[in-house]
Amino acid sequence: MSNGAALTLDPLRLVARWSLRTADHVGRFSFLIADMFRGLAEWRIWVPRTLEQATAVGYGSLFIVLLVAGFAGAVTSLQTGYQFTGTLPLYYAGAVISESMILELGPVLTALILAGRIGARYAAELGTMRVTEQIDALESLGRSPVSHLLIPRVIAGLLVIPALTMFANATGIIVGYLTAKGSLGLTYADFEYGARYFFRPLDLWYSAIKSVCFAGALTTIPCYLGFNTQQGAEGVGRATTTAVVSASVAILMLDALTTKLLLVAK
């Protein structure tokens, strides 16, 4: 017992074990991504399934994404009013609301919401299929689980999530304007002037590029974790929570990275 405790607390051993586990995950994740690229040739298999997944994921997520974006726009508008009233011209509110939605709140909030919704769904679905041997069954039939299960989910996410982000941006801006109109008395002309004054076309591209990066993270990580689930129902639960946490952390890291690369470099 005491020997076991000593072994567990040995920092060198812990670091070594963590490093090995990380290297194992990185290696297997890389192979999975390579398999997905290889599987793209089997388009007859993944195209119809991608459409099914895109419909399920996109349509099913639309309401919650728009709801969150609407509230984000409203709160941004109220806080802008609280901070700017009496110090800056009101048209600045138009700039702050539209730019904060397009550059940050739209893509990041959408991705975090979808990490919970889509990420959990993918990990749980694939994890259950793994522990009930459905993935083994596909392989035993000479069919590729990557083409049948993973590629449709990832591509559906890559198509749908940027689209949802753009809807979220638009919703946040509209609700932000309506809130500013109600609480600050901001006119449409002032709002539009502020929004246009600070807007650059790159901003929309930036928002789209970010959402594609987030989509990549929040689909591939849960797919990888679900695909490699072990140990029954407990394993499915573990894979699901790990998928949501890992995808969320990856989104925040990618957020910092894309901001540094795309905006600060500019």
Binding site: E133, Q134, D136, A137, E139, L141, G142, R143
Partner: peptide, 29 residues
Amino acid sequence: LATLRSRIGYVFQYGALFDSMSVAENIRL
């Protein structure tokens, strides 16, 4: 391996049927 597996039928312990597919679609696979 895929070619060889097409000559081997495998009956899994708990069936391992695909939940989202009908029986006909399962057999068709």
